[in-house]
Amino acid sequence: MADAILEFREVSAGYGSGIVLDHVTFAVPESGSLALLGRNGVGKTTLILTAMGFLPLTGGSIHCRGQDISKAPAHRRAQLGLGWVPQERDIFPSLSVEENLTVAARSGRWMLDAIWELFPRLKERRGNMGNQLSGGEQQMLTIGRTLMTNPAVLLLDEPLEGLAPIIVEELTAAIREMAQNEGMALVLVEQHADVALALTEDALVIERGAIAHRAKSQALLNDRATLERYVGMNLDVDESASRKA
């Protein structure tokens, strides 16, 4: 795909001798947005880690902006435009919010003023240390810091996990802003299918390390039978009191 930001071509990968991804092929176009759905343990996070270069390929190839990056180290992939927001909020606890944001910044659209506009909470807490933030604020900071590297495509691995509903609303609004108004390409791994499909254009369902279903996000959102088959009951944001701010 000539205009693809990120492309997997028959990619197989895993841990040691165990194969988790099995001949996976897909492409994310310029300004495209893709939801990766599936039950726990089917290979979604493995796909993200493989894209970033943390897991070696056992077959196939990965391309970024047409360049084969299959053997490129993670830092080189970041330089080429892959931005990763991991499940773990990997911030620097002893640095301030502003220092966390600027520590790996590269020039481009996403500078401090743009981050403050996207996440007003962070601007209010710009002098706070990372360990003084709530879980939701730390997630905002993780996304903001990745944006400060000015990536071409943002890989988000369950960014809403374990967060209070009000924080989920703020983060989904920010992701929607990036995808729809900023034209940023993104790949979103999210357990809550309704949320992921509402934020993206295209969707892939992963099952047992392979692509089991492809669809436009809106079409899949309306196909409850297919969602139930592949995703189960994770169709709505859990608003239980067990979620933490």
Rank of each mutant, 00 (worst) to 15 (best):
A35E: 04
I175K: 05
A51M: 14
G127P: 06
A196S: 09
R77N: 07
A193E: 12
A105D: 06
R229D: 04
L163V: 14
F92M: 11
T46G: 01
E161H: 09
R77K: 09
A4K: 08
Q67E: 15
N150L: 00
E124D: 13
V189R: 06
S242Y: 03
E88K: 15
A4C: 04
G32H: 10
G127Y: 06
C64W: 06
L221T: 09
L235Y: 07
G32Q: 12
A72R: 05
G135P: 08
A225C: 02
F92T: 09
A210H: 12
R243L: 13
I62A: 01
N150F: 05
A193D: 12
L82W: 10
G162W: 13
L55R: 04
R109V: 06
K244Q: 14
R208W: 06
Q180N: 07
P159Y: 08
L95C: 03
E207A: 12
D90R: 15
V231R: 03
L235F: 13
A104Y: 10
D3V: 10
W110H: 03
A4L: 06
L160H: 08
H213C: 10
D236Q: 14
A13Q: 07
A2S: 15
A78Q: 07
L34K: 11
D238S: 04
A152G: 15
L47I: 09
E158S: 06
G162N: 12
K244G: 06
T200D: 05
T226A: 13
F92I: 11
G144T: 04
M129N: 05
A27R: 08
G162P: 11
A2H: 10
D202R: 14
A241Y: 14
T149D: 05
